[in-house]
Design a protein around this nucleic acid. Sequence first.
DNA 1: TTGCTCCTCACGTCACGTGAGGTGGC
DNA 2: TTGCTCCTCACGTCACGTGAGGTGGC
Lengths: 149, 149
Amino acid sequence: MSTTSTGTRPLRIGELAELAGTTPRTIRYYEEIGLLDGASEREQGKHRVYTEADVERVGEILRLRDLLGLSLEQLSELLEAESARAEIRREYHATEDPKDQRRLLDQALGHLDRQLELLAARRSEIEQLQTELGERRQLVLHRLSELGS
Amino acid sequence: MSTTSTGTRPLRIGELAELAGTTPRTIRYYEEIGLLDGASEREQGKHRVYTEADVERVGEILRLRDLLGLSLEQLSELLEAESARAEIRREYHATEDPKDQRRLLDQALGHLDRQLELLAARRSEIEQLQTELGERRQLVLHRLSELGS
DNA sequence: TTGCTCCTCACGTCACGTGAGGTGGC
DNA sequence: TTGCTCCTCACGTCACGTGAGGTGGC
């Protein structure tokens, strides 16, 4: 049980990469261009250390990259505001000021809606191509049936 | 009417690019790596000439590139057999040998099914992410409603 | 202590973008 | 004939891949 469980044990770059479905090089590159926070306060030459939250973060970046066809700069803009929000949330969550809470929730809603919009557009492109190829398939099947058995 | 109609008039690279939704550079690059037939028997330095069929071909390449996330080499393999088939079809279409016709139709069916499979996989990934983000959206809406108006 | 994974350069690659300088065709 | 689009190098860029040589930590 303890062999497969990741628990809350800190992760090294190779483990993060494997869990998220990519390579160490990609993780380092994302850190280099600022998409990922450079594993904080690390001394030159020392190993990078990550958490489960980073697995989620990287996983989301990869999914959006693959499914939305955005450049990493566009993706960065999309996620930047969102992670800023996550930080603010940690600060303000305890303060219980309903005005702040409402503002944060509204922002979250906006980000989710933007991503959902992009996904819907992508999906409709795919569906269009599916119908097109499906029609061609029907035609081929029809011609085959005309040839008899 | 004759100003907007492309009719069957030959196209130059800029027109092909615009109609297909890309750039001349991309067209030249695809020719360079063999994805597109080098506009045949062109003398060094002379302009490339295309037809409406090329608009379809390039359009399909671009759609598959954007929607399937394949490398151009993988895409090339996917399309190579298909265009070989198209050529064979032109040769054999008149011969009316039902054995050949059945073979060609079977091949066409195979290619279409492979593409449809890839599209279905992509679509289900997108749908998964849509549900995930949709659930988060619901949660945010719920929290907003708890804050009252 | 050994062996694995990690580290930092740094060059290579894929899929084009972007000029530079010159020629083709309505 | 003028002006636009085209031509061919060829270097630049983005998102990493791939060693080379060396150090960190269970």
